[in-house]
Nucleic acid binder design. Structure first.
Length: 480
RNA sequence: GGUUCCGUCGUCUAGUGGUCUAGGACGUCUGGUUCUCAUCCAGAAAAUCGCGGGUUCGACUCCCGCCGGAAUCACCA
């Protein structure tokens, strides 16, 4: 396929949450895969729901995920403007053309009257269709009047790339509003006009638009436009219940995950594979792999439940992958905002070392805050933590004290404070004292960190350094 | 209620008539990796393929009916 043009067209009503980023990811993938263009268009036609700053939030979210766009806010393009509120003249022109052709009309009916019609139908238990109440002699249009499409009720067949062959009868077609009385277009009309003007070839959006599609088809026809490829994306379901994931169910914003230390690679990977797979058993995909392997045909046609646990697992995978493939430094660059406050006064090099021994324990970057405290602050000595430790509680305090002193002596004699030399010393200590690793190592580990867990003992000692390690051990020895 | 879509382990999924005694991943459980936590490795439990009919030598796969779930029916997108 050539000249592929896709778009992501959110309305600026707040943040983008995980339930709806997928309709940005898939169009992006399709555009890049086909050397096509991706358009970002802001559908701000509902002034009541407009949220200040939402556009920036959308831009930030996309940029963070690594989804860039070829046309739209910030980058411009040949079809400017990309805010629908600035394109009102265009929609009005198209609507006028429709009126001239007798396919649209100005509707003078007051809204209360429409409510009455609707009510009437509900009473009679017949479907409410405005076309049955079409005003007989619509007035000439003037500003302040809504414009409605004059539909021709008939059956439609079409193909949805995800849902398959579709068919509906005339009962779903109605005289939908094209231009609201406030002069802004409805989504229903605006997106058709914009997609046509911008040359959009693939319309990807949530399945909630599937039932309106016949009306769009009627519009394409009346406007003599060729149909773009229609691609309905199934909903992402909330963790519980069968509802689609929405802000009401506590759907977190994408940026919230960023702030919690989820990597964009993991987020993109997880979301792209929620409801799509390439048929192989691969689970971890880079953005480039997704671009290469993505296919519309393999998008699932049923909703997928959002599972944060799996996202977090994937994030752990990505943390390790970045460390292993790009090095400690590359991973460190992603951690700047996630260290405990006290870490700021330590040299960067030291933080990199801490990261290097702790990274494989991280699920999110923000775990650094809770997991690395003892590297940056003197832990509070808590003798009970030692005495009541499950490996140490069978020893008397005197025994513990003497064991600790032996250990201090041995470690003080270590010439080079390195990973290997420390391990040798630790092993010798084991032999000399006749203690089990569980006893000896637990004692030293707790004395040096007072943390519920820490990396391998020799590594912890290396990073802490000789001085700090011995000082802490001595302090504990004095406290017993 | 009308219209439309969907229905394989708890979850995400593989599966296009025989190779499925249904595969993988997350999660769970067990064991191993000199202490802890995690990683990693090995293993286990976990799906009568929504239900009932049919077609066929043979159906998770095709057809029909039913049931269940969802979406939509706005001057919101």
């Amino acid at each position: 396929m050539k000249n592929v043009v896709t778009r992501f067209a959110p309305s600026p009503t707040g943040y983008i949450h995980i339930g709806n980023v997928r309709s940005a990811i898939y169009p992006y993938l399709v555009a890049r895969q086909n050397n096509g263009k991706m358009i970002l268009r802001i559908e701000d036609t509902d002034r009541g729901r407009y949220v200040e700053g939402a556009t920036e939030l959308i831009e930030d979210t996309l940029k963070w995920l690594g989804l860039d766009w070829d046309e739209g806010p910030l980058v411009g393009g040949p079809n400017e403007p990309y805010f629908q509120s600035e394109r009102r003249e265009i929609y009005l022109e198209w609507a006028k053309k429709l009126m001239d052709a007798g396919r649209a009309y100005a509707d003078p009916t007051p809204e209360e009257k429409i409510d009455e019609y609707r009510h009437e139908c509900n009473e009679k238990k017949v479907p409410f269709l405005y076309r049955n109440f079409r005003p007989e002699n619509p007035p000439k249009w003037e500003p302040g009047m809504p414009i409605r499409f004059k539909t021709i009720p008939k059956s439609y067949d079409w193909h949805d790339e995800v849902m398959g062959d579709m068919h509906t009868g005339p009962e779903v077609l109605d005289d939908i509003i094209l231009i609201k009385k406030d002069g802004y277009p409805t989504y229903n009309f605006a997106h058709i006009v914009d997609d046509a003007e911008m040359g959009v070839t693939h319309v990807m959006r949530g399945v909630e638009y599937l039932s309106s599609t016949p009306n769009y088809l009627a519009l394409y026809e009346a406007l003599e436009l060729s149909r773009p490829l229609l691609i309905s994306l199934p909903h992402i379901l909330a963790p519980t219940g069968n509802k689609k994931l929405g802000k009401r169910d506590g759907a977190k914003s994408v940026t919230e995950y960023r702030d919690d230390g989820v990597l964009p690679e993991a987020m993109l990977n997880y979301l792209a594979c929620l409801g799509w797979n390439d048929g192989t058993e691969q689970e971890i995909y880079t953005k480039d792999e997704l671009v290469e392997k993505f296919s519309i045909e393999r998008i699932q046609n049923s909703g997928a439940r959002y599972d944060e646990t799996k996202l977090l697992w994937m994030n752990g995978q990505w943390i390790r992958r970045i460390f292993d493939e790009q090095g400690a430094r590359a991973l460190y660059d992603r951690t700047v905002n996630f260290w405990p406050e006290e870490a700021a006064s330590y040299p960067e090099e030291y933080r990199v070392k801490v990261l290097s021994i702790i990274y494989d324990r991280l699920k999110t970057m923000s775990d650094l805050k809770t997991m690395t405290g003892y590297f940056f602050t003197e832990p509070e000595i808590d003798v009970t933590a030692i005495v009541e430790n499950k490996f140490l509680k069978k020893m008397s305090e005197a025994e513990i004290e003497s064991l600790l002193k032996t250990a201090i002596q041995k470690l003080s004699d270590v010439k080079e404070w390195t990973e290997d030399k420390l391990q040798v010393a630790l092993n010798e200590l084991l032999e000399e004292t006749g203690k089990k690793p569980a006893e000896l190592f637990s004692l030293i580990r707790i004395a040096v960190s007072f943390a519920p867990f820490s990396p391998a003992l020799n590594l912890t000692l290396v990073v802490l350094g000789r001085e700090v390690s011995l000082a802490r051990l001595n302090a504990v020895a004095r406290s017993i």
